[in-house]
Write a protein that binds this DNA or RNA. Structure first.
Length: 275
DNA sequence: CCTATAGCCTGACGGC
DNA sequence: TGCCGTCAGGCTATAG
């Protein structure tokens, strides 16, 4: 689930619930996987606890699918940042009553006011750690510009895909080219643009590329307005229909389910003709 | 450069 | 009910 619009919704959620409250304790229920989390020694887990306790969150930022929660600087010389990545499952839940603790809570941040923020993830393929420089992290991770960055305009997009011969869906999902688009929103963008996901991006005309670019921005912005909630997406979106019996919201044709870039893709064979 | 695959984990679901 | 295979909206490393 968590692609750019979903992570943006979580960023807003953190900002509306969890800022300026002292952290009293951190409960790491399960060490989270992925490269930098040193699960063998639990060092990463201890570091998260040590850096968080006694401090407050100041603000939340996002780049692509990564969420960065900035800690206050009081008494600390380095700007520590809590990094959250949700992989395929997961989210955040702010609650008070212990009964309201969500299933699969992997990390619990207890505030002294009695509320808790849970990092939830059914599978443990996420990432929770403390870093100290967002820009340096983005650089080291090799992430491209955030797909909704206003500076990432059509000119920049065109330059980023110039010379590429890969399938358009693969390029949209590459975090190095632009950060934030995953399997579901790539399908949505291509549906709105009427482009078959297997089309080589080099085959698109300048006009088609420009239309694709604007559809990308529109789809992401619209999804954010609806808080990434599939139930609230416009009726022209294909997203809610991505299941075996799904039909095209535009022409009613049965949707096709195919593997593209090793990922399950849904498309309308009438509106997104193969070229 | 591009594509496909396996693996990291866990759980939901359908078929038997 | 239980067991089994398959699948899952991310990402990385690796091979061809």
């Amino acid at each position: 689930m968590p692609e750019l619009p979903d992570v943006e919704a979580m960023r807003q959620y953190v900002e509306s619930t969890s800022l300026h409250q002292e952290i009293g304790d951190v409960d790491i229920r399960a060490p989270i996987l992925m490269p930098h989390a040193d699960t063998a020694t639990g060092a990463a887990a201890r570091e998260v606890e040590e850096k968080l306790i006694g401090r407050c969150f100041d603000s939340a930022r996002r780049h692509g699918k990564y969420l960065f929660v900035l800690l206050d600087e009081e008494g600390h010389s380095i700007d520590d940042v809590l990094l959250l990545h949700f992989a395929m499952t997961g989210g955040l839940e702010y609650f008070k009553r212990p009964d309201d603790e969500p299933d699969y809570s992997r990390v619990l941040i207890h505030f002294v006011n009695g509320y808790q923020l849970a990092y939830v993830s059914q599978r443990k393929l996420g990432r929770v750690e403390v870093i100290n420089d967002v820009e340096r992290f983005v650089e080291a991770q090799g992430l491209g510009p955030d797909a909704l960055d206003p500076d990432f305009d059509f000119e920049a997009f065109q330059a980023a895909v110039d010379g590429r011969r890969a399938m358009v869906k693969a390029v949209l999902m590459e975090q190095e080219t632009m950060a934030g688009i995953g399997n579901v929103y790539a399908d949505e963008i291509l549906f709105q643009a009427g482009i078959h996901p297997r089309t080589k991006i080099s085959k698109l005309s300048g006009d088609e590329l420009e239309d694709l670019f604007h559809k990308m921005k529109d789809v992401l912005k619209t999804a954010i307005e609806r808080q990434g909630d599939p139930e609230r997406l416009p009726s022209c979106f294909v997203g809610p229909h991505r299941h075996e019996e799904g039909r095209c919201p535009r022409c009613g044709a049965a949707l096709e389910r195919v593997k593209v870039s090793s990922r399950t893709s849904y498309l309308c064979p009438e509106c997104q003709e193969r070229r």
